[in-house]
Amino acid sequence: TIDDAFRAIERAIQAENEGRYREALKHFLDGGEMIVTAAEKEASQKVRNLLLHKGKEVLEWAEHLAEWILE
């Protein structure tokens, strides 16, 4: 659900702030994927587009974090 997705993102932010970057990455990926999944089930085109945009933002952040971890 969207609530689960945002809880995962909150955990990711907390982990990132505490320097637990790999854990943060996992939570960002989980949250982003949950948002995209919820968007695919959404009946309203406007809400679907907003959710897809937010999911994409979260997944892009996860990608940047992963690249930073690997440096």
Rank of each mutant, 00 (worst) to 15 (best):
T1E: 09
T1N: 09
T1D: 08
I2K: 03
I2H: 04
D3I: 14
D3G: 11
D3T: 13
D3W: 15
D3Q: 15
D4W: 08
D4Y: 07
A5C: 10
A5V: 07
F6K: 04
R7G: 03
A8Y: 10
A8R: 10
A8Q: 08
A8G: 02
A8E: 13
I9L: 09
I9G: 00
I9Y: 02
E10P: 00
E10L: 12
E10D: 08
R11W: 08
R11D: 05
R11S: 05
R11M: 11
A12Q: 00
A12R: 01
I13S: 02
I13E: 02
I13P: 00
I13H: 04
Q14Y: 04
Q14T: 09
Q14S: 07
Q14N: 08
Q14R: 11
A15N: 03
A15L: 14
E16P: 02
N17I: 13
N17A: 12
N17Q: 13
N17S: 13
N17R: 14
E18L: 08
E18S: 07
E18I: 06
G19H: 05
G19N: 02
G19P: 02
G19F: 04
R20N: 08
R20Y: 05
R20S: 03
Y21S: 00
Y21P: 01
R22S: 10
E23F: 02
E23D: 12
A24D: 00
A24K: 01
L25N: 00
L25I: 13
K26T: 06
K26F: 08
K26H: 08
H27I: 05
H27P: 01
H27E: 07
H27L: 15
H27Y: 14
F28L: 13
F28Q: 01
F28I: 05
F28Y: 14
L29W: 08
L29Y: 08
L29V: 06
D30T: 13
D30G: 05
D30M: 15
G31K: 04
G31I: 14
G32L: 15
G32Q: 07
E33R: 15
E33Q: 14
E33S: 12
M34G: 05
M34P: 02
M34R: 06
M34V: 05
M34L: 13
I35F: 15
I35W: 06
V36H: 08
V36G: 07
V36N: 08
T37K: 15
T37D: 07
A38G: 04
A38P: 02
A38W: 08
A39W: 08
A39Q: 03
A39M: 09
K41V: 06
K41G: 10
K41Q: 10
E42Y: 09
E42A: 12
E42S: 11
A43E: 10
A43I: 13
A43G: 07
A43M: 12
S44Y: 08
S44C: 13
Q45C: 13
Q45S: 10
Q45P: 13
Q45W: 10
K46I: 14
K46N: 08
K46A: 14
V47F: 12
V47K: 07
V47Q: 05
N49R: 09
N49C: 14
N49G: 06
N49K: 06
N49I: 11
L50C: 14
L50A: 10
L50G: 04
L51I: 03
L52P: 01
L52D: 01
H53R: 15
H53G: 09
H53L: 15
K54N: 02
K54P: 01
G55Y: 15
G55L: 15
G55A: 15
G55D: 02
K56W: 11
K56S: 05
K56Q: 07
K56A: 10
K56L: 11
K56G: 03
E57C: 14
V58I: 13
V58P: 00
V58K: 00
L59F: 12
L59S: 03
E60V: 05
E60L: 13
E60D: 09
E60H: 13
W61V: 02
W61R: 07
W61L: 05
W61M: 05
A62P: 00
E63I: 14
E63G: 07
E63K: 15
H64G: 05
H64W: 10
L65P: 00
L65I: 07
A66D: 01
A66W: 13
A66G: 04
E67F: 10
W68P: 00
I69Q: 01
I69G: 02
L70K: 12
L70W: 11
L70M: 11
L70A: 12
